[in-house]
């Protein structure tokens, strides 16, 4: 296999790795996968954590190593990059659709400090009512918060703008 073909297959393999906390979403759709390149004979994959302490990074790293090896590469190295800092703006449209299908409200665009404090109400993913309230600023994972719909009374999660 030529290096170009190898890189193409490695890239596809890395991009198909899913997030252990959100299995329908790939790390590519979430913006966690930053780069795949050849360094001599080694495939080097760069990933970035959503949050500094994201506990899924170890699992994602080993899943990438396995996937890239299975794609035909002999040597794989996964590198953690911190800059530029991950933002929820990097979620692709397909990621946003999948989140909604899961009943998780995707983040607003244009994240930043102001939005972090300014986002008061989010639309219920089930009945689409805007009459909702935030129950907890922290949810089951670092990237989500807990809300409740005051119309259909269902609790739901929302992806934090970050």
């Amino acid at each position: 296999m030529t290096n170009d073909a190898l890189l193409e297959r490695a890239r596809a393999a890395a991009a198909s790795v899913t997030d252990p906390e959100l299995p329908p979403l790939t790390i590519d759709e979430l913006g966690i996968l930053r780069d795949v390149r050849m360094d001599g004979g080694t495939v080097e994959v760069a990933i970035t954590p959503t949050y500094s302490g994201c506990p899924a990074m170890m699992e994602i790293k080993s899943a990438i190593e396995t996937a890239v090896r299975e794609s035909g590469a002999e040597k794989v190295r996964v590198r953690l990059v911190l800059t530029p800092a991950w933002t929820s703006d990097w979620l692709t449209d397909s990621a946003r659709r999948k989140l909604l299908d899961l009943g998780i409200v995707p983040p607003d665009r244009a994240s930043g400090a102001e939005e972090l404090f300014g986002r008061v109400s989010v639309r219920c993913p089930r009945c689409h009512s805007g009459n909702t309230e935030r129950i907890s600023a922290f949810g089951s994972t670092a990237c989500k918060a807990l809300h409740r719909c005051l119309n259909c009374r269902e609790p739901f999660e929302a992806f934090k703008c970050h």
Binding site: S52, P84, A85, A113, F117, H162
Partner: peptide, 9 residues
């Protein structure tokens, strides 16, 4: 750059 967003929260 990462920590400031977390700390604001």
């Amino acid at each position: 750059e990462k920590a400031m967003k977390e700390t604001a929260y």
